[in-house]
Design a protein around this nucleic acid. Structure first.
Length: 722
DNA sequence: AGCACGCCGACT
DNA sequence: GTCGGCGTGCTC
């Protein structure tokens, strides 16, 4: 078998004299001899032991997702250890054969993966240009994890490492670090006793066990200390622990709780808002084993904790647990991988319960950690609803835009302390719902969401089929309405309704951390709610129907999660805490809130998704790009036999209000998106098929993952499948 | 993605 | 004869 290159060369040499031709053929054959001895083009001396370095080049492109061999010069022998960052010449410029070997190609970064005696590569090896630093940042464990994540998400290892290894900072690296402090003693389980087998769980951690649990936390501020106790128990067993929370504020709470329990110095805080130097210093402290525990936001999910004994994710339904860089790994999934690979304990906690969490319990992978109903009733606020019927009957509501019940609860609450008002954030996508019962309109073929198109016709956002005779399967209605959200004005009007009371707002721009226990109206968007000292006296959850009627698979789950998140900051019912939600009391998430039963909701939701073939019971991948590119890609890909392709359908350009996520179509281009769905168990096969097809495509002609006009993008577990 | 190599048409 | 377009294929 001769390479294409060789054929070409031979063709061009036909005019050359025979003896010269023979010489050239000889040269070609020589270059192809297997097990070529490593040599540099300067003939520099090589390391005597293991002179070949296997290098992972730091380029996200998929067809470069493998190792390249380089020769190790003698002078780099000592520092060229596995795991260090290196720079190498890489690119076509390196093989200018004619005028003797000349340096070419650009210098690019990479990681030295291992040192070996011989190379499989048949050509002459280039030499490592530089060892950037002797710090072995890429351990075999981290590389293994990065590879597993890359496989799970059909991405490249280099892309994952970009998320996993922070940029180097020389000054941070120079700092000396001491040995880790002595482990703390095993904790008293304290409030963990409120959960059925909570004390048992902590005991298992402390004695070196690796239990896995989905924990439904009771409302209130105790959760941070409960996580800290789990960390303490794990440290007591001589192992390390990793906690990932959705944002800086909850990270600060767990940090404070840990300080309170075991003091400073046992753990590092890894959050995005730290500067580069501090980030790298903290990360190094973890890698070097100077600290044994980590609390942080999503980038911390890869933290190289030594002898990992426990991983924790808090509030896994929060969107910020999903990384927004390729290949878009999710904290819960990555920590599941870590727990499996490292055989360590796993704790997924939240006030609510995601469908994915319910699935972990149902599959038997994790055990439920819940309090009994009596405990729940004692800790949760009283929840009351205001539905359409109430509103219609309510004269006062029409005038004041505030239902009588809501008004009364707020007024009464303000007599005892602060009152939280939750208003939805702007920017929910208006799609279609039943005008009568407000159930989202769904496609009768694949159950995707229906949306009105530019021309006015009704189409499925997944499979693209037109719907001409829709009627509501819930209530039999046949009229549709577009969903519109207008919110903030309500807050201003509220302020006018209670003129003597101070109004404070907390939102995306300015997030309040805490508010005092004095009477005030606290208006907040979901996720930005300040914690009130002693708890809120009441909470008012407005425009619930708008949250619920988004035609998103997770609309109900999301709404419930946000309500629960607000309600958990309210005093218990026994202390007068009351929540009013403006939403139909017949709807499932509303009922779940009233009963404070997030697990029941998630379990029912899971059963329904299994029936309809929705994630997470099936796995989905989105393929998007220009129409021809998507079609060609799908034609070329060898998808698993059970794969089902939905669509493609046009990607809406700049849908009203929805912020365009990174990875959308460039301005002015019309893109399409297809969804590929497989049965449970075929997820890995799907990811692998997509990765192979993408790599082949890029290597062939197309312009691969990022740039070019014929690019396609793959996203496993797309977040917005309508 | 870059980047060189090589074939094929235009021009001093 | 040589210069330079861009179509292919490789990168240790």
């Amino acid at each position: 078998m001769s390479s294409g290159n060789g054929q070409q060369r031979a063709g061009g040499e036909e005019a050359a004299p025979p003896e010269q031709l023979a010489l050239m053929r000889e040269a070609v054959r020589k270059a192809k001899e297997p097990r070529a001895k490593p040599r540099t083009w300067r003939g520099a001396a090589l390391a005597r032991e293991l002179p070949v370095a296997r290098v992972l080049v730091d380029k996200g492109v998929l067809h470069l997702d493998r190792y390249f061999d380089y020769a190790v010069p003698e002078e780099l022998d000592a520092v060229a250890r596995p795991g260090v960052r290196v720079r190498v010449r890489f690119g076509a410029g390196g093989r200018n054969v004619r005028e003797g070997r000349r340096e070419g190609g650009g210098l690019i970064d990479g990681f030295l993966v291992e040192r070996v005696a011989e190379s499989d590569y048949s050509g002459p090896l280039a030499a490592l240009a530089q060892v950037v630093s002797p710090e072995p940042v890429l351990s075999p464990e981290l590389l293994g994890l990065a590879r597993a994540v890359a496989d799970r998400y059909a991405g490249s290892v280099a892309d994952v490492l970009q998320l996993a290894v922070p940029p180097r900072h020389a000054r941070a690296e120079a700092a000396e670090m001491g040995p880790p402090p002595a482990p703390p003693s095993a904790p008293d389980p304290k409030s963990w006793r409120r959960y059925g087998r909570g004390a048992e769980f902590l005991g298992s951690l402390a004695s070196g066990g690796s239990p896995r649990a989905v924990w439904t936390a009771l409302p209130g501020p105790q959760w941070a200390e409960e996580i800290a106790l789990a960390v303490q128990a794990t440290l007591a067993s001589g192992r390390g622990a990793l906690v990932v929370v959705p944002a800086g504020r909850p990270a600060a709470r767990v940090d404070a709780a840990l300080r309170g329990l075991i003091g400073d110095g046992q753990h590092a805080l890894l959050t995005a808002d730290a500067g580069q130097e501090r980030r790298y210093r903290e990360w190094l402290a973890v890698r070097r084993g100077a600290v044994r525990a980590v609390v942080g936001t999503r980038a911390a999910m890869f933290a190289p904790v030594r002898n990992l004994g426990l991983v924790v994710v808090w509030d896994d339904g929060d969107a910020s647990h999903s990384d927004d860089n390729a290949p878009f790994p999710h904290v819960r999934e990555v920590l599941e991988l870590r727990a499996s690979r490292d055989k360590c304990a796993f704790l997924l906690g939240g006030w609510g319960c995601t469908v994915e969490a319910a699935q972990l319990v149902e599959s038997g992978w994790a055990a439920p950690l819940v309090a009994d109903r009596e405990q729940v009733r004692a800790a949760a606020p009283l929840v009351r609803t205001v539905g359409d019927g109430d509103l219609a009957r309510d004269e006062a509501a029409r005038a004041a835009r505030l239902p009588t019940l809501a008004w009364e609860v707020v007024r009464e609450g303000l007599r005892h302390g602060p009152v939280l008002v939750q208003v939805p954030r702007r920017g929910y996508v208006p799609r279609m719902a039943c005008a009568q019962c407000r159930a989202p309109a769904r496609c009768r073929h694949c159950a995707g969401p229906l949306a009105a198109q530019d021309a006015g016709e009704l189409r499925c956002c997944w499979c693209g089929r037109e719907e001409t005779s829709w009627h509501c399967p819930e209530c039999g209605g046949f009229r549709l309405r577009a969903q519109v959200v207008g919110a903030r004005r309500t807050a201003e009007e509220l302020g006018r309704a209670f003129p003597a009371v101070p109004v404070r707002t907390s939102g995306r721009e300015q997030v309040l951390d805490t508010v005092p226990s004095t009477s005030a109206l606290v208006v907040s968007t979901p996720g930005a709610e300040p914690v009130a000292e002693g708890g809120y006296a009441a909470a008012l959850l407005l425009d619930g129907w708008a949250m619920l009627s988004r035609p998103d698979l997770r609309a109900g789950e999301d709404a419930l999660r946000r309500w629960i998140g607000a309600g958990a900051l309210v005093r218990p019912q026994s202390a007068g805490g009351t929540v009013v939600v403006v939403a139909e009391p017949t709807l499932r998430p509303v009922q779940a809130l009233v009963r404070w039963d997030p697990v029941g909701h998630a379990v029912r939701e899971l059963a329904e998704r299994a029936e309809l073939g929705f994630p997470p019971v099936s796995r989905m991948a989105a393929v998007s790009g220009k129409a021809e590119a998507v079609a060609e890609f799908l034609r070329g890909a060898e998808l698993p036999p059970d794969a089902e392709v939905l669509g493609p359908v046009p990607v809406p350009v700049g849908e009203a209000g929805r912020p365009r996520r990174a990875g959308g179509p460039p301005p002015g281009e019309r893109w399409e998106r297809a969804l590929v769905r497989v049965r449970p168990g075929s997820g890995a096969a799907l990811a692998s098929a997509l990765k192979t097809a993408l790599a082949a495509r890029t290597a062939r002609g197309g312009s691969g993952g990022s740039g070019g006009s014929d690019a396609v993008r793959i996203r496993i577990d797309p977040p917005d499948i309508g």
